[in-house]
Design a protein around this nucleic acid. Structure first.
Length: 612
RNA sequence: GGCCCCGUAGCUCAGCUGGAUAGAGCAACUGACUUCUAAUCAGUAGGUCCCAGGUUCGAAUCCUGGCGGGGUCACCA
């Protein structure tokens, strides 16, 4: 309906000035509350071409519109702002638009967009950082689908390497044959426990060494005025590689794994499967799933052929030691290694190969990598190299970069055990929702099982919304108390708007009220108009969210819509059998608004309860 | 040090590709539930939009230079 208004505006300009406006130059925005009118047209951009003062132009166009458009019945001009007042024809039609069952659903555009997110290591359980990643990735995939794309959700699991071997060695040494089944510990936590135990054992070994042999190494290798503590902190990796007994065992295991040693591979598979079972439970609890999973054990050799190809084409160069590099200085970057001197892959090699594999396998048109912002440079380089290789999808790659999650007590560090566990968090928010709901008593008389489902929806809404409402680019501080807030700008606040609507609709049904036609017979007040305008903007909101790769756009939209509804609900009686026309209209509005809220929140991975 | 990101109310954050008097929530204070769910609503108070220049009818927004915070510059991932 807004299109029609724009068209009328365009024609009015044509009629008054004989100038054809470019469609996307016609910017109509909702009029600010402080002024009279419904939509505002800013005439400043026209001043130059029309060579007249803004006041005159605005009045001329305004007059023309009142005369020729059935949608406009008045206007006022403040400086260069033309505020148009619209007729009920417009509002009737707008309500009609937003009430359609397919409103806000884009028809498929035939394009495939792959979204990579989560991508954990198999040596420890998922934590708060993964949750931000997962929510962003999941949400952007939903938003892509809402915009007509076919989204393919994927993750690449880091299931190999030295870290994974640490857990394996540790379990061999200290596990005494324990399993997740025998201990009742969730698989990923179980393996994580041994990873932690490895670190502990290693630290003890390191400490002992520092008192003996390490002393000589310290005096020989320390920097000027470097204390023992600082030195040994810096030297840790080197110790692991050169002196550590447990380190040697771990490296030996990695080599055995790479050579395909049966026993090692069997242990590796057994332990990874424990982890996958655990991950699966966490994903289920968070309500996310994947369409395709890559394992590094299967992709880490990819990309070597590409390096060869690039070498032949002169895109890369080989150093004397045999390592392969790419020179990106002309693009403002530096030289980057893409193959080690011993011919083994680095991360970049694998990423090049995996991108090509995904393109070939799925025929994707574009890809989004959901990875924390510490890897900004890596992806800049990756995309540049793919571009130079002439990959057809190279300009359709995007890094959905997000800031790290800090705690109120400081940074999360797995080494220091300050991470917030994902599973714990899900339990915490459930409990908080339960407590809150019980205090309010809105679910009394319901079966426990049903109640639990609702607590879960509310708790997850609080947690998810708390994280997803923040612009991904920004580093965020996770305050556990605020994450379970249920008032104000929160998930439960939005759910509550929806629940109130469902409650009214139940009442309507019970009362046996029959809806009657109302078009052309009701007057729209300011809040009616505000809400309709907002609802109308939904398609452009989800388009913007995808364009900016930013789900928080949708989160903020849902909040504003819920807020308006809460006020509407407070100020207006929706079911009023004395006024069937107005009631019919309001029921219509509330129904559509409820659906829209649910639709928007679904894009964030948040479900709506019918009661709360 | 080079490059990238961030800086808006006491706190957490919005502010769309430049538009009218910069907005929410939390925290504080005041009111509103025998009426469709008060997880709500209405109100009070709270601002050098980090600083300084520049671009123009108009700058929180764009440009330049600073300041502060974070990240990154490995034959790690």
């Amino acid at each position: 309906m807004l299109l029609k208004l724009k068209e009328d505006l365009k024609q009015s300009v044509q009629a008054a000035y004989d100038v054809t406006m470019d469609d996307n130059a016609i910017i109509l925005s909702p009029t600010k509350k402080e002024f009279n009118g419904d939509y505002t047209f800013v005439v400043f951009p026209l001043v130059k071409t029309l060579k007249n003062n803004p006041q005159v132009i605005a009045e001329t166009i305004g007059n023309e519109m009142v005369k020729s458009s059935e949608l406009v019945d008045g206007f006022n001009v403040v400086k260069g702002f033309l505020n148009l007042s619209l007729t009920s024809i417009f509002w009737d039609a707008l309500l009609n638009d937003v009430s359609k069952s397919d409103f806000g659903i884009q028809s498929p555009n035939g394009k495939k967009m792959m979204v990579e997110f989560s991508s954990p290591n198999t040596n420890k359980p998922l934590h708060l950082g993964h949750i931000r990643n997962i929510l962003l990735g999941w949400s952007i995939s939903q938003i892509a689908e809402a915009n007509g794309y076919e989204a393919i959700k994927t993750q690449i699991i880091n299931d190999r390497g030295i870290a994974v071997c640490k857990s394996m060695i540790s379990w061999q040494k200290f596990g005494k044959g324990e399993t997740p089944q025998s201990t009742g510990i969730k698989g990923d936590h179980f393996v994580g426990k041994y990873y932690v135990q490895f670190e502990k054992a290693f630290q003890e070994e390191y400490k002992d060494w520092q008192k003996g042999e390490g002393q000589n190494v310290y005096t020989e290798n320390r920097k000027e005025a470097e204390g023992a503590e600082a030195f040994f902190k810096r030297y840790k990796n080197q110790y692991f590689n050169e002196f550590s007994k447990i380190g040697k065992e771990t490296k030996a295991m990695l080599i055995k794994w790479e050579s395909g040693d049966e026993e090692t591979v069997a242990l590796w598979e057994k332990m990874n499967n424990w982890v996958y079972e655990g991950f699966e439970k966490t994903y289920q609890a968070l309500g996310v799933s994947f369409d395709s999973i890559n394992y590094e054990s299967e992709t880490y050799l990819l990309g070597k052929a590409t390096v060869e190809k690039g070498l032949k084409e002169g895109l890369f160069y080989k150093k004397d030691d045999g390592s392969v590099w790419v020179d990106l200085e002309d693009a403002g970057m530096d030289h980057k290694i893409i193959l080690r001197s011993d011919g083994t892959s680095v991360y970049m090699t694998q990423d090049l190969g995996t991108a090509q594999m995904r393109y070939e396998k799925f025929g994707i048109d574009s890809m989004i990598y959901t990875v924390a912002d510490e890897q900004d440079y890596h992806f800049k380089v990756l995309f540049e190299i793919l571009k130079r290789l002439g990959e057809p999808y190279a300009d359709q790659l995007h890094h959905l970069s997000y800031g790290m999650v800090d705690l109120t007590t400081g940074k999360m560090k797995s080494r220091e055990g300050t991470v917030v566990d994902a599973d714990d968090l899900v339990v915490d928010v459930f409990e908080a929702a339960k407590k809150s709901s019980t205090e309010r008593g809105g679910l009394e008389g319901m079966e426990e099982k049903e109640k639990d489902k609702i607590y879960n929806k509310i708790g997850l809404a609080a947690l998810k919304y708390f994280i997803i409402k923040i612009n991904p680019r920004k580093r965020m501080t996770f305050d556990p108390n605020e994450s379970v807030d249920m008032q104000g700008t929160t998930g439960p606040y939005i759910q509550n708007a929806y629940v109130r609507i469902q409650s009214v609709l139940r009442k309507v049904k019970q009362s046996g009220f029959n809806e009657v036609p109302f078009k052309g017979e009701i007057t729209y007040n300011n809040l009616d108009k505000e809400i309709l305008v907002m609802m109308e903007s939904y398609p452009s909101v989800i388009a913007e969210a995808l364009e900016k790769y930013d789900p928080s756009v949708v989160a903020n939209y849902c909040y504003t819509l819920a807020k308006s509804f809460h006020r509407y609900y407070h100020d207006n009686v929706i079911l009023d059998t004395e006024n069937p026309k107005v009631s019919s209209y309001r029921i219509n509005l509330a129904t559509s608004l409820g659906k829209l809220l649910a639709k928007g929140m679904k894009l964030l991975g948040i479900e709506m309860p019918d009661y709360m």
